[in-house]
């Protein structure tokens, strides 16, 4: 199996606080990897190391290797713009820009140099169809994205992310701000997307991890306790702590 991202001995510190300790993990191509664990276990921090969003915080120090297609993304000469184009991100709270639906989608492609109107129109239609939003919004593309419902906004954010043609999509609890119906729509969307993209999803919701993911990684206090195929993690985990968390004994 092809490891799209290989994480080796990753340690991350916020100032003197160590948030991640010796994380080793493989993220496989065109599979969904779920990261689960109690609040503050470092799963979101870990997710943000994969597209270097932690660079925004001054006090962060990182040791270890994150190899994307066998290249270390923390190497000095690695182009961070290219990295973020390749590794898209969807956030916990839907965060469309205060612009029209159309402008939200074309923002990324424009940044990366696509200015041809026809091409941009195609991107908008393609990505909105990919997230099953096209039929709902095709008549109001020039209307503000803020007028959409929470679930629609989140699908728009996924479409915006797809518009720059990433290979990997990181999702930080993408459904935690949504109602159950909108959550189900996003989950069925993930099943479609994984045919083309590699997906890493942080979730608080264990049923969700069980439903959508191929692999699951259990984090506790900044360490990876166990990573395995989701079926195994949920039916027959190796580690007692994983079993306790899965069965709801703590967390």
């Amino acid at each position: 199996m092809n490891a799209k991202i290989k994480i080796e001995n990753l340690n991350l510190y916020y100032g003197s606080f160590q948030a991640l300790t010796d994380v080793n993990m493989n993220i496989y191509e065109k599979k969904i990897t779920a990261l689960i664990g109690p609040s503050g276990c470092g799963k979101s921090t870990f997710l943000r190391t994969l597209n270097r969003m932690n660079d925004l915080i001054d006090s962060v120090r990182i040791k270890g290797n994150v190899l994307l297609d066998y290249k270390d993304i923390y190497a000095k000469d690695y182009d961070i713009i290219k990295l973020r184009k390749k590794v898209g991100m969807v956030f916990q709270k839907p965060n469309p820009f205060p612009k029209s639906i159309y402008e939200n989608i074309v923002y990324g492609p424009r940044i990366h140099g696509i200015n041809d109107k026809q091409k941009l129109d195609e991107i908008v239609e393609r990505t909105l169809k990919e997230v099953a939003l096209w039929d709902e919004v095709k008549d109001r593309l020039k209307k503000p994205a803020m007028g959409l419902s929470g679930g629609q906004q989140q699908r728009l954010c996924i479409a915006r992310c797809l518009a720059v043609e990433p290979e990997i999509i990181l999702m930080d609890e993408p459904t935690s701000a949504l109602d159950p119906v909108a959550t189900l729509r996003i989950e069925s969307l993930l099943e479609e997307l994984v045919r083309k993209y590699t997906i890493v999803i942080v979730t608080h919701n264990m049923q969700q991890a069980g439903r959508v993911s191929d692999y699951t990684s259990f984090f506790l206090s900044g360490r990876v306790i166990e990573t395995d195929e989701t079926d195994i993690i949920f039916s027959n985990p190796d580690n007692k702590k994983t079993e306790d968390y899965i069965t709801g004994r703590f967390g």
Binding site: M53, K82, K85, F91, F97, I111, R160
Partner: peptide
């Protein structure tokens, strides 16, 4: 964050 994550 959204803007930076898109590679801006």
């Amino acid at each position: 964050e959204a803007s930076l994550a898109l590679g801006a």
